[in-house]
Design a protein around this nucleic acid. Structure first.
Lengths: 107, 107
DNA sequence: TCCATTTATTGACATTTTTAAATACATGGA
DNA sequence: TCCATGTATTTAAAAATGTCAATAAATGGA
C-alpha cells in the first residue's frame, strides 16, 4: 500500500458521507462571490449549524477536494471539479493495475 | 439527497479504507478457484485474522462491489470491476449534475 | 451421527467520527 | 481601541467503526 493509495483511500472516505456530498452539490466550481455563498449563508441554506459545516469543509479541504479564498470577512469555498474527477480516475486505475495476472490454465 | 446518492456515498465509504483497498487488490476479477484464493488463504496471505477479513468482505458485499460463490467448503470472492468503474462514473456524474448554473454576470 | 474444515457472526474493547454548543480567532468599520 | 460580523477551533457527548478472540453455522467426509 503506497502513500498515494493512502491518499486515494482518504479522498474516497471524505466523499463517502452524505452530508459532505450534499455540501459539494451546493458549492460552485469556481470562486464565486456573486451569490453570497459564504460559509454562514451556506450553513443557513442547508439548515446545518455553522461549526458542523466548517468541520466537513475542513475534511474536504484536507482531502484537497475543495479550495477557498477569503474576501473581507467572508470565506468562499468551491469544488475543485478536476480533483473529484481525478479521484474517480485513480480509483479506476487502482482497480486495473491490481488485476492479478491470470496464470496459464492448469490442464 | 436521493436514495441513489445514499448508495453512492455508501460505496465510496466502503472503498475509502486502506484495509479494503488492499483486499480488493488481491481479489481476482472473476470466480477463480485455480489459485486457492479462498477466504482463509487470503487471510493468511495478508496476515489478517480471518474474522477481520470476513468483516471487510461483508462491507464490500453489501456495497455490491464484490461477488462470491461457495464451492464445497470454500468461498471464493472476486471484485466486480464494472461495479467499481460504475462508482467512479457516478461520482463524476454527481459532480457534473450538481454544478450550480451560472447566472448572468452582474454588470 | 460425529468430526474436521471453512466461513460468518457475536461480543468486547479501543479508536474514530459526527454533531453542536461554547469559545477563540480574524477582519474591518466606527 | 472597541465592537460587530464571519469563520475556525475546542470541547464534550453520542454514535459508528475497526479489530480480533470466541463461537456459531455450514459443508462434506468417515
Amino acid at each position: 500500500m503506497t502513500d498515494s493509495d493512502d491518499i486515494l483511500a482518504r479522498q474516497l472516505w471524505a466523499l463517502g458521507d452524505t452530508a459532505r456530498l450534499r455540501i459539494l452539490a451546493r458549492l460552485p466550481r469556481n470562486p464565486d462571490c456573486k451569490h453570497r455563498n459564504n460559509v454562514s449563508q451556506l450553513a443557513e441554506d442547508m439548515g446545518m449549524p455553522q461549526p458542523t459545516l466548517s468541520h466537513h469543509l475542513r475534511v474536504l479541504r484536507q482531502a484537497e477536494l475543495v479550495s477557498y479564498k477569503r474576501m473581507c470577512r467572508d470565506v468562499y469555498y468551491w469544488l475543485d471539479e478536476n480533483a473529484a474527477h481525478d479521484v474517480a480516475k485513480r480509483l479506476c486505475d487502482y482497480v486495473k493495475e491490481h488485476a492479478p495476472k491470470e496464470e496459464a490454465d492448469v490442464t
